[in-house]
Simulated assay, not measured.
Amino acid sequence: MSYRRDSTLWKPYDRFEKLIGQEKAEEFWTEKQISEKLSKKSKLAVQFVSHCETHSLREQFIKKLDKYINITTFGDCGNKTTDMKEQDILDQYYFYFAFENAVCKDYITEKFWRLKHLIVPVVLKRSILKGIIEDEYFIAADDFSTPEALANKLSEISENITEYKK
């Protein structure tokens, strides 16, 4: 049993499931709830990091990206500490860096699933999620030619609520 889809038993951290029409209304966000959540967002990007040196070299990418946008980092490798609940922190930000420790076939970090709290995840490589998660649910850093191009896109989206909702 593992995160690999070719294992005998596939056990990802989480997943999306197709709606079958029997779900309860409280299982979905209303337009009003979405607007309320979005009204709390004022900061661009956040990450929670406990492994400071990784095989994926995410720390090097973040260092380059941080030259163009402000990224708040919590955790053992971060510059911020807080007594706030994680959800209260996430509510303030538009984007969450869900960069993996290592880039492995089919591995989707548990951090990705914070998107269920109405924050857009940014992942390192689109190819990791191919066939598992639809493209419109995240932003992939490798879609951009430079960290600066990614930074510009994140800033642009955060300033256009209609685009952000997409």
Rank of each mutant, 00 (worst) to 15 (best):
F97A: 04
K32W: 01
E31I: 06
F138G: 08
K105V: 14
L90V: 02
H51K: 15
T72F: 01
W113D: 12
I157P: 04
K105L: 15
R4M: 07
K43M: 04
V46R: 01
K11P: 00
A102Q: 11
P121H: 07
Y164K: 08
K125T: 08
N160L: 01
S42Y: 00
S158W: 12
M1W: 07
L115D: 13
H117I: 00
E136R: 15
L19K: 05
C104W: 12
K63E: 11
T30V: 05
E134D: 09
Y96E: 07
K166Y: 09
L154T: 04
T54G: 10
D106V: 15
L44S: 09
Y164R: 05
I108Q: 14
I128H: 09
K80H: 09
F74L: 05
F61Q: 04
D106Y: 13
V46P: 02
L124N: 05
T146S: 15
F112T: 11
I157Y: 08
V122G: 00
I132A: 08
L118D: 02
T73C: 13
K40W: 03
S42M: 00
K43I: 01
K11N: 05
D142L: 10
F112W: 15
T109H: 13
C52G: 00
Q60M: 11
E27M: 15
A151N: 05
D76P: 00
F138C: 02
E23V: 12
L115F: 14
Y96D: 09
G21Y: 04
K116R: 14
T81Y: 05
F74C: 11
